[in-house]
Design a protein around this nucleic acid. Sequence first.
DNA 1: CAATAAAACGGACCGAGGTCCGCTTAAAGG
DNA 2: CCTTTAAGCGGACCTCGGTCCGTTTTATTG
Lengths: 201, 201
Amino acid sequence: MQLTAPEAAPLRADAARNRARLLEAAARLVEEQGVARLTMEGVACAAAVGKGTVFRRFGDRTGLLMALLDHTEQRFQAAFISGPAPLGPGASPVERLHAFGCHVLRQTSERLDLYLAAEPEVTRRFTAAPYRVRFMHVCMLLRQTGPGPDTDVELVAQTLMGYLDPALIGHLTRQRGMPPERLEAGWHDLVDRSVGPRPAV
Amino acid sequence: MQLTAPEAAPLRADAARNRARLLEAAARLVEEQGVARLTMEGVACAAAVGKGTVFRRFGDRTGLLMALLDHTEQRFQAAFISGPAPLGPGASPVERLHAFGCHVLRQTSERLDLYLAAEPEVTRRFTAAPYRVRFMHVCMLLRQTGPGPDTDVELVAQTLMGYLDPALIGHLTRQRGMPPERLEAGWHDLVDRSVGPRPAV
DNA sequence: CAATAAAACGGACCGAGGTCCGCTTAAAGG
DNA sequence: CCTTTAAGCGGACCTCGGTCCGTTTTATTG
C-alpha cells in the first residue's frame, strides 16, 4: 500500500528524477545535521530544485518525512502481512500481536527523531496511511483471537496502538529513561490483558 | 497546582492587568471565529497590547491556549483530588477510575477544538503540568487497587491516559462518528482489564 | 520624594512553512 | 516531426510564530 498515492499515476520522467533527488538530499541532510535542522528550502536547494517542487511532490514537511520512512514501513508491512512467523501468518494471533508490538518498539526507537518529526498534525495522526494499515492489522489479529461479544475490537486496537505512539515511546525512553525491555514487557502485559474476554468486575 | 508557574511570583500590576485583558480577548476571539483563526498578533491587537507581551506572558501559542483551559482544569483537579465521590475520595479506586475517564471524555468533547489546538508539541505532550497531574492521579488510583507485583503501574497508567488523548477522542467522534456512549463503554472495559491481576496467558 | 533596579512593554525583525501563477517541458496523437 | 495539452517547475510572495533590544513603567529603599 502506497503512503502518498493509493492509485499512483506514474510520474513524468523529470518528476520522478526530482523526487529521487529530493529524497536523497533530504536523507543526507537529516543524517548530517539532524531532522530538526531540516528545512524545506534547504532540501530544495540541496537537490538543485525549486521550493515549489518539494511541496508539489510531498504536500508538506510531514509528507516528506513520511516518505523518508516509507521504505522501512513497506518492509514492515510486508513482514506482518505475508512474512514468516511470528510476525506473519503461521503463528497464533496472540503471538503475532506480541511480535508486532516488539517490532514497532524497536523500529521506532531506532530512528526516533525521524518518527517524532514525521508525526502528522493532530487531525491527521489517525488517517495517515501507515497508521491505518497498522491499525487494521491489529484489528484483524484481535478478531482472530475470538474476543467476547461485548469486546469493542476497534477501541481495544486503538488502545494498543496508543501504546506504540512514537511520542510516548520517546517520552518513556528519553525523559523517563526506561530501558527497552521494560517497554516490551509492558506491551506483552497489555496484549495479554487485551485479548482475553472482558474480566468480570 | 498551577499550570504555568508552580512557584508563582506575583505579577506586577500592569502585567496582571494585561494578562487578564489578553485572556479575555483570546476567549472572545476563539468564540467568535474559532480557535483555528486565532493568531497571536490578533490577540495582542484585540487586547491593545504589544505582540511581545503575549509571548512574554504565555510563552507560546500553546501556552496561551492552555491558559484558556486552566480554569476548567483547576476545577477538575479539585474535583478528583478532594471533591465528592465517585470522582473524589470516598469511592473505591476502581469506581474513581471509571468516573475519571468519563469526566475527561465529556470535558474534552465539550470543547474539543480548543483541546486539540492546545495539544503541545510532541516532546512536551507528557511533561505539560495538566497531563502530569492527571497521570499521577491515575497512577495513585491504580496502586490503590492492589495490582499484582508484576504489574507496571506507570505503563498501565500511560495506556489509560492514551485512551483519553484529545486527538483520539476527536478522531473517533468526528472522523469515525462514534457516539459518546461507545467511547465510555470502551473506557469502562479498559479500566476493568487494567485493574485486575495480569491474566494467565 | 528621589534614586535605582528589576520587570514589563512594544513593535521591528527574522525564519520557515506553504501558496500562487506565469513559464517550461515531457509525452501522446495525428 | 509538429501540435497540443496537461503535468511539472521555480521562486517571489504571504502569513504567522517566535525573538530581540531599546524604551517605559512599576516597586522598593533611603
